[in-house]
Amino acid sequence: MAVQPGQHRMGPGGVPAGRDAVRLFGLRAAPVDDLAAQAGAVAVACHAMAARFHQGGKLVVFGTGGASTDAQHVAVEFVHPVIVGKRALPAISLTTDVATVTGIAERDGVAAIFAHQIRYLAAPGDIALGISPDGNCRSVLGGLAVAAELGLLRIALAGGTGGDIAARGLADHLLVARSDDPRIVKELHVTMYHVLWELVHVFFEQPGVLAPAVLA
C-alpha cells in the first residue's frame, strides 16, 4: 500500500501493533522541540495580543477543515477560561455560523468566507488569528489580507514551511509547526494556542508592560 503524506508505514503485514503506536508517538518529539526553539516569537506574539486586549480589542479566529475546530477551541479558551481566577477575554470563531459560511462560499467562493466576516464583524483594534496547517488555505489567506487592510493585529499558525502565509508576509506574528504531517501540525497548534492563551494573561495581569510608553 502506498503511504501518503502524513501517513506512516505500519509493521509487517500492515496489521497495526503496539510498536506502531509507540513509533507514532515518538514522531511528535522533534517538532515539539522545534516549537520550544520558537519561544522568543511566542513571547513577542503574546505581548502584542495582550496589548490589543488591554486596549479593548477582541480576538477573531478562523480556519477550515480540522482547523475550524481549533478556531472554536481558541474561542472557548478565551471566553471561558479553564483556570479559576483568569478573566474572560472577548473572542469569536468565524466558523460556527453555518448559514453565513455556506452562503458566502456559494456566492463568492471559499476564499471570501473569513474575509467577508472580518470586514463586517471586526474592528481595526482587533486581533485576527488564522490557522492553516499548510499555510496555503485560500480562506485563511483571504481573511489575513482583509485584516491587514483594516489594521488588525495578525497572528497565524501554520505548518510545513509556512506556505503562502510566510511567502506573502501576511502575518505580523507567524508560528510554524515544522512537520509535513497535518495531524502533528494540529497537535502543535493546540499547544501553541494553549500557551498563547495562558501567557497573554501574564502580560495582561501586569498592565505596566502594556503602557503606551512600553509599547511605543
Binding site: L35, A36, A39, V42, A43, V44, H47, E198, L199, V202
Partner: peptide, 12 residues
C-alpha cells in the same frame, strides 16, 4: 518576556 519564553520551553 524572558519568563514567558522559559514558560513556553517548560510546557513543551
Amino acid at each position: 518576556l524572558a519568563q514567558v519564553r522559559a514558560s513556553t520551553v517548560a510546557k513543551a
